[in-house]
Amino acid sequence: MIKVVTLLFKKPELTTDAFRDYYETHHSKLGEKYLASHATKYVRRYPILAGDGAEDPEFDVMMEVWFENYRAMEAAMGDMTTDAAQAELSADEERLFDRDRTQSFIVDEYESTLKPA
């Protein structure tokens, strides 16, 4: 299983509520449009609390996209880098994100099956 993890930062002028609302009602729909035929899961995780005295995370949302394999990920990226897709995605991202701060990682995920104690 391959996962793309991206840390995204909102534009400074947006409130947290406005950012989340726009992402969930509009921008995520663009993600679904381009990912649906390739990805197995598309999740947004918004930090709400840092534990044990840790500082609040600097990012505003952690986006995760799961793919069955590297080929599926490449196919999705191919669809998202066409001129038409880039025009649509970039215009929307400019409204929402501080794009200079975006951090993406491709990770190979392993999951443990936990049994109750």
Rank of each mutant, 00 (worst) to 15 (best):
K11L: 09
V5D: 04
I106G: 05
T102V: 15
T15Q: 07
L7D: 02
S90M: 10
M77V: 11
K33T: 12
D98R: 09
R71F: 05
F19D: 00
D60Q: 06
A75M: 13
H27F: 04
L96R: 00
E93L: 01
M73T: 01
A85K: 03
A91G: 14
L35H: 13
A18E: 13
S37V: 10
L7S: 02
A87K: 09
L8N: 03
L49T: 05
K3I: 04
E111M: 15
L96Y: 01
A72F: 10
V5I: 11
E88C: 01
F59N: 01
P116V: 11
A87Y: 04
M80T: 05
E93H: 08
A76K: 03
L7C: 07
P116N: 12
Y34S: 01
A87L: 12
S104D: 09
G78Y: 06
K41N: 12
T102P: 08
D100I: 07
K11T: 09
A87C: 05
M62I: 03
R20M: 15
M77Y: 11
K115M: 13
M62D: 02
E94Y: 11
E68Q: 15
E111A: 15
L30A: 02
G31Y: 07
F59P: 00
R44H: 15
K29E: 14
H27K: 09
F67H: 00
A72P: 05
R45K: 08
K29C: 09
E55W: 10
T113M: 15
D21L: 06
M73P: 03
E74F: 12
E58K: 06
F19M: 05
A39Q: 07
Y23C: 00
D79Q: 05
Y22P: 08
P57F: 07
S104P: 05
P116A: 12
A39G: 14
T6H: 06
T82C: 07
E32L: 11
Y70Q: 08
